[in-house]
Design a protein around this nucleic acid. Structure first.
Length: 191
DNA sequence: CAGTGGATGCTCT
DNA sequence: GAGCATCCACTGT
């Protein structure tokens, strides 16, 4: 039986739960897809979240309804993709950090200019390049939109660790990875 | 394998 | 003007 696209209600839950449950789901865009093997959650209540300072021009999508896509430019170069979550009134999102490539692998290789399978999507900036997800997709809705997320068919074993690459609220254990996956962004997660 | 530094552009102070 | 939710190339073990 083919997996179903995740409904809005899936994203209208506390962001840590959504982030954990997204590991093993499938992200699809424009001829390519990958199994989500690493996520992080961000919530307005902690300083690492873009929404922490209140609504701005950049982060307004975070304050909108769950089930939409938040894309922003990191270090002037990389697009990073997030899925907006939480009950209405809470700004939160799940950062997709790594995928195991599934479909359209040759297309991913040409978009990335890289050959190795475990280098195609093993990082938040890499996977957006591999799937062709750019800033123009900021704010799109998941259901009926160009980007899809499909339910996992079994629950993977998940490793919880600290988030990576941030300087604020570094102690929170809000990173979720598929245990033993060789496609995660960093082989040795911080404790 | 670990550590360092440059690229690059937008957002917010 | 500072600071990035990153990646890659390069250095030295």
């Amino acid at each position: 039986m083919a997996p179903a696209q995740l409904p809005r209600a899936f994203f209208e839950r506390p962001v840590e739960e959504v982030a954990k449950d997204l590991v093993g789901a499938v992200l699809v865009h424009d001829g390519t897809s990958g199994l989500i093997v690493e996520t992080e959650s961000y919530h307005q209540s902690e300083a690492a979240c873009h929404a922490h300072v209140g609504p701005t021009a950049r982060n307004r999508v975070l304050f909108g309804p769950a089930g939409h896509v938040y894309v922003y430019l990191s270090y002037g170069i990389h697009s990073l993709v997030n899925l907006v979550t939480g009950p209405d009134g809470e700004a939160a999102a799940v950062l997709i950090r790594a995928l195991e490539p599934l479909e359209g692998i040759e297309l991913m290789r040409s978009r990335r200019g890289v050959d190795r399978l475990d280098e195609l999507c093993s990082g938040p900036g890499k996977l957006t390049e591999a799937l062709g997800i750019g800033l123009e997709f900021n704010g799109v809705e998941l259901s009926d939109g160009p980007i899809g997320v499909f339910a996992r068919d079994s629950e993977p074993e998940i490793v919880v660790s600290k988030r990576v690459g941030i300087t604020k609220a570094v102690e929170l254990p809000w990173r979720f990875s598929a245990s033993g996956s060789r496609f995660v962004s960093r082989p040795r997660p911080p404790a």
